[in-house]
């Protein structure tokens, strides 16, 4: 019997392996446990409100049993949609420039370092920036457009950094093959580099969307409304968003509003999960090609 090359692995190392394994599993479980607590709590406390009417109705401060999240949900979808519509083209283009077009230089490094810094700036700062630049200086007003612009600036660093990372992961050989076959740099980018990296880019966009849907602080600063019964229908309309609706309900002294808050938390998590699942399915499909 020839000794296996692994038979020399000591019991100590096996234990270490098992230990790290268990440690990592615990780490995952802790994260999941909190999620379960939030979901179960949302269902348990919010159950009396979880119905189709809760999704269809506007808020109702006089009759909490008849209140719903429709207006807040529409507001959230508008804000996220606008955010992506602005941030994705700009972010992807910026990443392509930095990664594929710009020659290495001090200026590029400077810009690059700043983008990485911006990704860590607290969101309230973006809110104040949005208030000063979009709402006041550019006279956009406290409406959906201002919210979309502010949130787009907020998620832009994330989109740029992830897209750059995705482009960097494309093997050199693919680019060189394309160029060797007579493809122009532009053709190489559009037909090879981008399609190969699209899965990772999508992940970045999911991160951006998830962050945009969960943010509240900057939106309060740029004028999200606490109580509104009309859903937005165009860019200059006022709006509220799900997290703000949850905040407003959960701070109400009456028990029936707390039930609304729990139900709304559950809805928010379902929306987030649905968004993530869609993106994961899409990404897997694209990567298999």
């Amino acid at each position: 019997m020839t000794p296996s090359p692994f038979s020399s692995v000591s019991a100590g190392r096996k234990f270490k392996d098992k230990f790290v394994h268990a440690l990592c599993l615990t780490a995952v479980l802790v994260g999941i446990a909190f999620l379960v607590v939030v979901i179960v709590g949302g269902i348990r406390d919010g159950l009396p409100r979880l119905s189709l009417d809760f999704l269809r109705n506007p808020p109702n401060p006089r009759r909490p049993e008849q209140a719903g999240v429709f207006v807040a949900m529409m507001g959230s979808l508008w804000v996220v949609g606008l955010t992506l519509l602005i941030a994705v083209p700009v972010g992807v283009a910026a990443a392509i420039y930095l990664e594929e077009i710009a020659r290495p230089s001090r200026t590029r490094d400077f810009v690059q370092a700043n983008i990485a810094n911006l990704a860590g700036v607290p969101s309230i700062v973006y809110g104040l920036l949005g208030l000063a630049v979009f709402v006041r200086a550019m006279q956009v007003g406290t409406n959906l457009l201002a919210a979309g612009l502010t949130m787009a600036v907020l998620v832009l660093p994330t989109v740029i950094l992830v897209t750059q990372e995705a482009l960097r992961m494309v093997p050199r050989s693919i680019r060189e093959a394309s160029l060797a076959l007579g493809g122009t740099p532009w053709q190489t980018l559009i037909r090879q580099t981008l399609p190969t990296s699209i899965g990772t880019i999508l992940t970045g966009i999911i991160f951006a969307a998830a962050r945009a849907i969960g943010e509240t602080a900057p939106l309060i600063v740029v004028g999200a409304v606490g109580f509104i019964v009309k859903s937005p229908s165009n860019l200059t309309d006022s709006y509220t968003v799900l997290p703000l609706q949850i905040y407003s309900w959960s701070s109400d002294p009456k028990k029936s509003f707390q039930i609304n808050a729990s139900a709304a938390i559950f809805v928010l998590i379902v929306v987030l999960t649905a968004m993530n699942l869609t993106a994961i399915v899409l990404r897997n499909k694209l990567q298999r090609r």
Binding site: L77, G81, L84, L85, P89, I190, I201, I205, T278, L286
Partner: peptide, 12 residues
Amino acid sequence: QLACLSVVALGS
């Protein structure tokens, strides 16, 4: 594939 990218971007 590019169409897919834009579809997701405009999804919401």
